[in-house]
C-alpha cells in the first residue's frame, strides 16, 4: 500500500500553549484525507485540539551513522547548562 498510498507523520497539540508532538503515522492518498485519518486514529480519546500532517518523504532526518559526530561533542560541555548561578531569593522560581 505504501507504493500507492503515501505515508504521513502526524503531530498533535494536546492543548493551547503547548507544541505539536509526534503521535505516529498513517497512510492517506492526499493531505485532506490524511488529516481525517489522523483525527480518526489519534484523537479518539480527546488527545488534542490541533493536528499537523507532514508527508513522511518530506522529512529530512539525521543520519544514524553520524550520531557520534553530531551529538557526542555536546556531552562534555556542562557549562552550557545554566546551573552555576546563585539565584537571589527575591527572584523566586525561574
Amino acid at each position: 500500500m505504501t507504493q500507492t498510498t503515501p505515508l504521513w507523520e502526524v503531530f498533535i497539540r494536546p492543548r493551547n500553549g503547548l507544541a505539536h508532538k509526534h503521535a505516529g503515522s498513517i497512510h492517506a492518498a492526499d493531505e485532506v484525507l490524511a488529516l481525517q485519518a489522523a483525527r480518526d486514529v489519534y484523537t479518539r480519546r480527546g488527545e488534542g485540539n490541533s493536528i499537523w500532517v507532514v508527508r513522511s518523504a518530506d522529512i529530512y532526518a539525521s543520519d544514524p551513522d553520524q550520531t557520534a559526530e553530531n551529538f557526542d561533542p555536546a556531552a562534555d560541555k556542562v557549562y552550557r547548562h545554566p546551573t552555576f548561578y546563585d539565584i537571589p531569593d527575591d527572584v523566586g522560581h525561574m
Binding site: 492517506a28 485519518a37 480518526d40 486514529v41
Partner: peptide, 10 residues
C-alpha cells in the same frame, strides 16, 4: 485500511 477501520466505527 486501518485508518478507515477506525473511522467507520468512530
Amino acid at each position: 485500511m486501518l485508518e478507515e477501520d477506525l473511522a467507520l466505527p468512530n
